[in-house]
Every structure is written in structure tokens, then in C-alpha cells.
Design a protein around this nucleic acid. Structure first.
Lengths: 221, 221
DNA sequence: ACCTGAACACCGTTCAAGT
DNA sequence: ACCTGAACACCGTTCAAGT
């Protein structure tokens, strides 16, 4: 008998040929289940009941698969509405962005790190810049949208990370020691805030602060 | 003769024993040179002329070494000054933060992802919360500081990433195709903004927007 | 206490060979 | 065209053995 656990797929493919779409579909499923960086090419092969090399044949490297997954996920976000006031349009779409990204852990972090460089994001960026420019920001629209979007995905990434609590030094654990500290009242306040864990409020607060800053800038320009 | 390249350190240690500090020192050097996530335990062993297992003996896992590096780097940032107006104090320290983090690539991203959970950051957090609370934000100080800090490290991480241009789909390359697009004027504006690459301006703009938002909130509370 | 050196259980990726 | 299956060159980590 062969020793050790099976390395390849347990069931040999006796099925119609795979294509790139099916590979990315499976990768989106694994991302939903485990997170974008929590699955391996070998796991994806098991999900598809194929050898890892088949994935390379249809899509390419792991990075290429990941980029396709992000593109799919970003494509799920409802686009900005140009027929309503700029602020309301952004609040709606950014709220929807959070919902979609929370269903696909790790994608927010990827966007924060890599930037929104997938095809599905480009339409939204174009519209976002035009809306901000039209609302009075003019040439500053691009930089303002960059700040707004990177703040949004960063806040979602922070929230995912706090919720997971996977890191070596978990933030709640570290701050918990100062929960009732009289010598460090600031840390005590931060500790109780982190304990409450109100992520809706964190996201809302951050987005509103940036939007306020942008609105003020509109008045000044 | 032994085949293949040497796996272990080329020169055997004939030196005084190592300690944890020296291991972290070396890791800080490698971080400065290559970035926090660009060196391996084996490379660190070569830098120290020791076997990888020695690192585990003195410090622990790679994550533990990384956390120590981040602590050291955060400790280099000039602390918030409580004797000047809150806004000036933050602008100064956040400017210094950017300089320090840019000298140690990858640390900004680690802070963005993991949160400022290293000992060296706690004093700064305590002071930051107290300053904001005293300036009129009261109970909102903790959430506001969270938003401000996460925006700052995120903007620095973005800047490092754009400068490196390491990712599969480089942002300049992707946007470059729309540089003179008439059908996507928003993307054209974004492309020319990214091309200019004025990172000082990006950081400054983002920080000032968030500070403006916080200042407005102070007036409302 | 500190270091040696091999070994383990993973990775992503490549490639000649099969059908 | 698409899939097989082994192999390569890495990782982080562990551990018995040496001094």
C-alpha cells in the first residue's frame, strides 16, 4: 500500500474539462469560507478534484488566481449613483462595499495593500473621480478619492483582523491589562472601546470624518 | 565532496554567545535593507552566522522576531508633545512616524494589519487618547485616534507599495492605459495623479482631511 | 546555556510525459 | 487541449545530540 496521506486529488477526474471560470469560482468559494490568503493552490486543487498544475494551465500562478477573485468580488459592489447628491452616493456604496468585503475575508486587505487595480474597480474609480470633481473638488478629486477609498478598505481590514484575533499579540489581550488602569487613562479608554467591538460604529465614524474633511475642502476650493 | 549549495552558515561560530538583543538588532538591519517581510529566518541566520534554530532559542518564532522589530521601530518615533496645541502635536508626530516607517519598509503594513499592539506604541496611544479627550472629544477620543492612526499607517503602506511596484498588476501600468482617455475622464485624472507620485502630498492631504473631520467633530460634541 | 545539523511537513511552481 | 504525477527549490519549525 502507498504510505503517507494522499498528495494529489483523491478522486481522479472523470469529468468534462475544467476552464478558467470554474477555477476562479472555486477560489471565490474558498475565499468566502477561509479567506483570501488562507487557501493554498493544493487546497484549490482538492476543491476542484484536479492536480495543482491544472490550475496553472487554466489561470496561472496563485497571484493570478487571487487577482481574478478580487475582481469578481469587487464586481459585486453596487456602483455609485450619479443621480443623487455626492455624499449620499458615497455613503451608500461604501456601506455596500463593507457588506461585500465582509463576505470575502482578506479581500479588503488585498485592496488596501495592492490598490484597486482590478478591472471591476476601474469603472467605480472613474465615476468616483467625476462625482467628486463635479461636486466642487476639481483637480483634487483623484487624491481625495484615493484617501477615501484607502481609508474605507483599511477600516474593513482592521475590523476583520480584530474580529479574527489571529495575531501573536491580540489587541484585546494587550489592551485588556490596562482596562482599569489609573496611571494610563488613555489606554483604559482605548481598551474599553476595543472591548465593545462596535465595528459598525468604527467604520461609520471613520468614513464620516473623511467625508467631513472632504466637504470642508470643497467649501475652501 | 558535498553536493549543492551550503544550507547552514558558511562560517562556524567561534565567537561569544549570541543573545536576544543581537538577534533583533540583526533583524532590524535586514528590515531596513529588504523590508519586514522580505527576509527569512534562514537569511537572518546567515546575517548572524548562526543556525536558524539558534534564533528560536533566543527569541522564538519568526512572528516573535517580527514583533520585536516593530517594537524597536515604533520606539524610534518622537512622542506626542502635550505642551503644544493638539493639532500641531499630531501633525509633528505623524510626520516623524512617516519618516521612521519609511526607513523600515513593511512596518507600516504590519501596523495597519495587526494594529499598534507593541509595547512601544502603548505610551503613545495613551497620550494620544488623553490629548484628544482633553481637546474636547471626550469619550470619542479612542475611536478618533484609531481612525487617525490607521489612516496614517495605511497611507504610508500605500505609498511604499506604489513606490515598490512589486505587485502583479502595477497600479501605474493599469491606469496608464487611460492616461488620455476621453471616455473615462475620471481614470485619466487618477492616472495623472498616480504618475506624479507626490507621496508627501498624498500623506499630507489624507492626514489633514482626517484632522479636519476630527476638528469639526470637536465643535459638535 | 548555547549551538549543531538533520529532519519534518509544508509551500508555490515547473515540466516531461501521457491521453 | 487538457491532465498526470513527480520533482525542484524553497519555507518555518522542531528536536535529539553535542559542547
Amino acid at each position: 500500500m502507498p504510505n503517507g496521506p494522499a498528495r494529489g486529488p483523491r478522486i481522479l477526474r472523470n469529468q468534462p474539462p475544467l476552464n478558467a471560470d470554474q477555477v476562479v469560482d472555486a477560489a471565490v468559494r474558498l475565499t468566502h469560507r477561509y479567506g483570501l490568503e488562507q487557501w493554498t493552490i493544493r487546497q484549490l486543487g482538492e476543491e476542484l478534484e484536479c492536480w495543482p498544475s491544472v490550475i496553472y494551465h487554466h489561470v496561472g500562478t496563485r497571484d493570478a488566481v487571487v487577482t481574478e477573485v478580487v475582481d469578481r468580488v469587487v464586481g459585486m459592489v453596487r456602483p455609485l449613483d450619479e443621480s443623487i447628491p455626492w455624499r449620499q452616493s458615497f455613503e451608500t456604496t461604501l456601506g455596500d462595499l463593507r457588506i461585500v468585503l465582509r463576505h470575502h475575508p482578506g479581500v479588503a486587505r488585498w485592496l488596501a495593500v495592492t490598490g484597486p487595480v482590478v478591472p471591476a474597480a476601474l469603472r467605480g474609480i472613474d465615476r468616483g473621480v467625476r462625482i467628486l470633481a463635479g461636486a466642487g473638488l476639481g483637480d483634487e478629486a483623484a487624491i481625495a478619492l484615493t484617501v477615501l477609498l484607502s481609508s474605507a478598505v483599511q477600516l474593513i481590514a482592521v475590523e476583520e483582523n480584530w474580529a479574527a484575533g489571529e495575531s501573536l499579540s491580540d489587541i484585546r489581550e494587550v489592551l485588556g491589562e490596562y482596562r482599569d488602569s489609573a496611571t494610563y487613562p488613555g489606554l483604559a479608554a482605548m481598551s474599553s472601546f476595543v472591548d465593545k467591538c462596535d465595528f459598525d460604529a468604527l467604520y461609520q465614524y471613520g468614513i464620516v470624518r473623511v467625508l467631513d474633511g472632504i466637504a470642508e475642502r470643497m467649501r475652501a476650493v
